[in-house]
Each structure stands twice: as C-alpha cells, then as structure tokens.
C-alpha cells in the first residue's frame, strides 16, 4: 500500500482543461443547432407577426413587431376565404389520399418485397424513378389525362392524382420494411391455414403500423401543402383546398398582406395541430422496430 502511494504522481490543483474543452465544445454545438432552429423558424415567426399588424404598421415598418395583437385581420380573412369549407376539403382530400396510398402501396410492396427476382427488382427501380421525376414534368400529362377522363374539378380526380404521385414513395417505404419481416411469420401463417390475402391482412399489415404512421405524416404534409395540383385540377370554389384559398389574397395587381398572412397562418394551423397532437406517436413509430 505504501509503495503504491509513493509511486502515485501528485495531482496538481488548477483548471481542469479537459472538462473546460468538453463544455466549450458542447456549448458551440448547442449554439449551432439553436441558430439553425432560429433560421428555420424565422419565416414562421414573420408570418405570425405580420398577421397581427394593421395595414398602417405594415406600410410604415414591414419588419417591425406589431404594437398590439390586431385580430381584425383574422376576422376579415375568415369571412372572405371560406375557411371552414376549404379546411374540410383539405382534410377530406388528405385523408383519402393517405388511405388509398397506404393500402395500395402496402399491397403493391408485399409481392415486390417477397419475390426478389429480376422483374420485381425492375418494378421497384421504375417506382424509384417515380420519386425522382420532377413535379413539373407530370403536370401536363396529368391535366390532359384527367380532362379526357372527365375527372377535372372532382374530388375523385384530385385524390387519384395525389395517390398516383405519392404511390412510389409508399412502395419504396414498404418494400424495404416488408423485406425485413421474417419469412417464418408468413410460414407460420400458412400452417395456420391462411391464404396470401389473409397473410397480408392479418400478419403483414398490422406489422406495418409504425412505418405507416411515418409515411402518413409525409403524405399529409405533402398533400396539405401542395399548391400546383389543386390549382390545376380544381376550379369549383366549393372544392378548393385551404392552400388555394390562401392564394386568393395574391391578386393579379397586388397582394393584400393584412389578409394573406392571417390566411396563411389559418391554412397551416390544422396541420400544425395534427403534427403536435400525433408527434409522439409518429416519432415512436418512426423509431420502433415491429419485429423482435
């Protein structure tokens, strides 16, 4: 024992540089992340701030903070944009698209994940191309096809168009996930007297819940915020989505900011509420493994 104490080096008292370096690094990393978050939130903050300013305040100091929260803009926007109707349209279209894409995507992905031959691989590749195709390439063909099919200005038309556009994403998502589900489960189901459809419905589909939650979130954001296709395929005022309703305040000759900004806030609000409400479930779904 005494030998040990004799050979031990003397510990000098003074600043612990290792700890200081560690804390500095942590502080810089946090500051960097906070700056990024601030940059991302800036447009949102600007939108909300502008929505509470009077027209005089906007004219005098476009970047300044409002002196008080002026709710009149919201009243004016609500009365002139048909808010409830357009939100209901957006909700209806978004949910319909999610249901169609989730069902057809999972059903398409199941055989593609399980076949694992040249044909299935080619189909997955073609599907992946669908993901890479720029939106503007598909606008004209979709318009022409839907016009010829008589699907312009109909809920069915807009749901089908979105479903077709989002299907590659779903197939891509599900193919990878289903491929990771052990074959033993399907074989056990076969021994349990299941046919292919029953295996899909009773065994595979429930296991897709986590990935479905994440996929639904992506589709929800994309469809809710999409501007081009509703503008292209819908003209009837009663069928417009909330994003098109917001666009009403961008006129040919000028913009009315006192209505545009509150309308934009109102348009984003349902999506934000849904995201906050389901955030925990969605994040849990995105990270949890279905098969242990």
């Amino acid at each position: 024992m005494s030998d040990l104490t004799q050979t031990l080096p003397q510990v000098k008292s003074g600043p612990d540089w290792v700890l200081i370096r560690k804390r500095t690094r942590s502080f810089i990393a946090h500051a960097f992340v906070l700056t990024l978050v601030a940059i991302m939130l800036l447009p949102l903050f600007y939108m909300v701030m502008m929505s509470f300013k009077t027209s005089t305040e906007i004219a005098q100091d476009p970047l300044g903070l409002p002196e008080s929260l002026y709710w009149g803009n919201y009243m004016a926007a609500l009365s002139s944009m048909g808010y409830v109707r357009s939100v209901l349209n957006s909700i209806g279209i978004t949910i319909s698209v999610i249901v169609v894409v989730v069902l057809t995507g999972a059903m398409a992905a199941y055989p593609l994940a399980r076949m694992n031959n040249r044909i299935s691989k080619t189909i997955v590749m073609v599907m992946a191309l669908g993901l890479a195709t720029p939106n503007f390439v598909t606008i004209t063909p979709i318009y022409v096809i839907f016009r010829d099919l008589g699907l312009l200005d109909s809920y069915l038309g807009i749901v089908l168009a979105f479903a077709a556009l989002k299907l590659p994403l779903a197939v891509f998502f599900y193919t990878g996930f289903i491929a990771a589900i052990p074959m033993d489960l399907e074989e056990a189901a076969k021994l349990d007297n299941c046919n292919s459809w029953q295996i899909f419905w009773h065994v595979i589909r429930p296991l897709l819940a986590p990935v479905t939650a994440t996929l639904s979130l992506f589709i929800m954001i994309m469809v809710w915020n999409d501007f081009i296709y509703p503008l292209l395929l819908l003209t009837d005022k009663s069928k417009l989505t909330v994003m098109i309703a917001v666009y009403k305040f961008v006129g040919n000759t000028g913009i009315d900011p006192t209505k545009l900004f509150p309308a934009a806030v109102l348009g984003s609000l349902p999506l934000l509420i849904m995201f906050v409400a389901f955030q925990r479930k969605i994040m849990a779904g995105a990270t949890a493994g279905a098969v242990k």
């Binding site: 033993d184 489960l185 074989e187 056990a188 189901a189 076969k190 021994l191 349990d192 296991l207 279905a290």
Partner: peptide, 20 residues
C-alpha cells in the same frame, strides 16, 4: 398438399409468434 391441409403443426427456431 398445402401446409394447412397436411395435419401438421410446426414450431420454428425463431418462435415465429405474431408480434402484434
């Protein structure tokens, strides 16, 4: 015969229990 028609039941190495 299909698996279910054979009158057999199998216990898998991985248990193959339906997790849900």
């Amino acid at each position: 015969f299909d698996p279910a028609e054979r009158g057999v039941a199998m216990v898998f190495q991985t248990y193959a229990l339906y997790p849900h």
